[in-house]
Amino acid sequence: MRHIFLLVASSLCAALPAGAAEPSEAEAEGLAAVRNFTLEHNAALVAEAEKLQAATSAYAALISGQGGDYEAAWSAKGPELAAAVAAIRKQWLATSNEYETIEGIVAGLPAMVKYDLILDAGNPGGQPEDVAEYDLPLPDGTVLERPGNLFHAITEPLMWGTDDTHVKLKADLDGDGKTGAGEVLFDANLAVGATGALVFWAKALETDMKAWEPGRNDAFTAVVTMTPTVGDYFAEWKDSHLAGRLGAAFVARSRLADVTGIMGGCQRMYVDAVSPVLAEGGDTALDTSIRGGFDELLALVAETRAREEAGETFGAEEADALAAESQDIAERIVAQVLQAAAKYDVQIEG
């Protein structure tokens, strides 16, 4: 729902002053640092997306080389196709990593939130909220209307074979004599179209991001909007530990990787762009408390992720407790940032 507010706010942004007061040198430097950091990773996102597009094109060429017959292609080019799928998945992770690094900033900015919906977080058309407002043209001329976000609604379920609709052939990709979960050849047409769209929208984001003039309102809004979403993301991670859940996304890697990226972005925005405002206003204790909150939150996520990567499994009860703890920390942070926002007459857009 955060996106609804941000989208509404984005239309008002142009009419609002960038910040309630002229930023100090430290604040201006902080805002510029956030912008530069975002642009740096945005450029990397474009580069990685282009590599992903190339990888899917290579995969599609193997299929089309056999007249579009997946079974024939697997018979003729099995090892090459298995390698192509592996390369695509690896490249998908590299591309997604770049976006996750800046998602906490992009999704928190009213002017940029539409890109978060399209790239990573939006629902398909027909859903009551947070619809990714774009159509997806495919190489064969088909146009998918409002198909949902590119990373988690389309490419991840496609490339990891969790969306049966786009599975073309079950295939023993790892050569162990069995076709386990995710061992599939997927729709090359959709893969090429979706990765092309990833490149297109990553570049569009970059264009708008270059034109973005960061202000105090933006910084505060991003922090108070995105930080509380940790509970939602943690809940999605937690859900993956409960039996009987429905869902095809977040199979490529743990949702905790996303949480790390998003909360890291929120922390960066706070430390670089908001903290100087409090420091200059003499609110050292409040600033220290908020910084401490972010440290605590990131430490909790990092510790949980380390345990998971070490092979530890989490019961539903413990996962639930971790989600609740993270949400509690986030809400304390946000309450304090809002108190500061009120003191400094900051407009929270939404």
Binding site: A335, Q336, G350
Partner: peptide, 8 residues
Amino acid sequence: NRFASVPP
């Protein structure tokens, strides 16, 4: 409230 400025 949309923005909860009261800590939990």
